[in-house]
Amino acid sequence: MFRRLKDKLTKGWMIFCLVVVILLPLFIGVGLMVKSSLLLEKHSVWNLLFTSSWQPLEGKFGFLPFILSSLWITIIAILISGPVCLLSAIYLTQYAKSFVLKIMHPVIDILAGIPSVIFGVWGLLVVVPVIARISPFFGSAGSGYTIISGALVLSIMIIPFILNILIEVFRAIPEELTESSLSLGATRWETVKYVLVRKAFPGIISALGLGISRAFGETIAVLMVVGNVITIPHGIFDPGYPLPALIANNYGEMLSIPMYDSALMLSAFILFIVVLVFNLFSRFAIARLERFY
């Protein structure tokens, strides 16, 4: 009697939950846009994104130092961890015995599960002092709180996410492809270089894209080691002030100033857009590339 009704109800709830999940990012995006509109009405987008003078009390909101800091840190972090992950994934899937991969899976999961504040503390205790020690050789004053410190901490943090995808990507390649290449007289390395990496290329792009999305939004660990000085960084041994840190450091204190509040919302909106664009781009790239391979 009630079974049919129950069936219908459960299905309804499932659809409801699904719709919530789908609409959530949309609402967040729209909310951020509305909240930042106050600032956007007073200043041109160009002015906000490409000027570097940040004096909220005087009504000057130049986001360039924050945007550049975020870009520097993200790009360097990917440049460090991308090759590390790629080579690890190739070794684990092509050369290592299968028990090594079995050991590595929980290790990667543990790495992914470490709270980011712990990475921040590690950065403070280890990375910052080391960078402080070596930065004078690169012609920098050397507090240790620099772009490179943030990038190093970040590069470690994103390893599990990139590595996990890359392992899956390489495992999905049929063994027969390797056999074909070997039987044509190629060595293992030639097979990896010319065949497997090519076959995995769409997957590699998507893994790096996801890594970039994560890196761009990472807040606390980076905030603890980059120095948070509002200047345009001119080198990796300069301090920086990435966008997420701007929000985290100031939100809650500046609510009394509507413009400031709006400015922080705009930085959140910029983060949101960048992550969105990167996700869409890597998806699009995958679709295009997969058609070719």
């Binding site: 049929p174 056999e179 074909s180 290449s181 070997l182 039987s183 065949v195």
Partner: peptide
């Protein structure tokens, strides 16, 4: 070199990418 002496044709074709 030994493998080069032998061409292999597998069950399904696996063209290189």
């Amino acid at each position: 070199m030994l493998r080069k002496k032998m061409g292999l044709l597998s069950q399904r074709p696996y063209p290189l990418p």
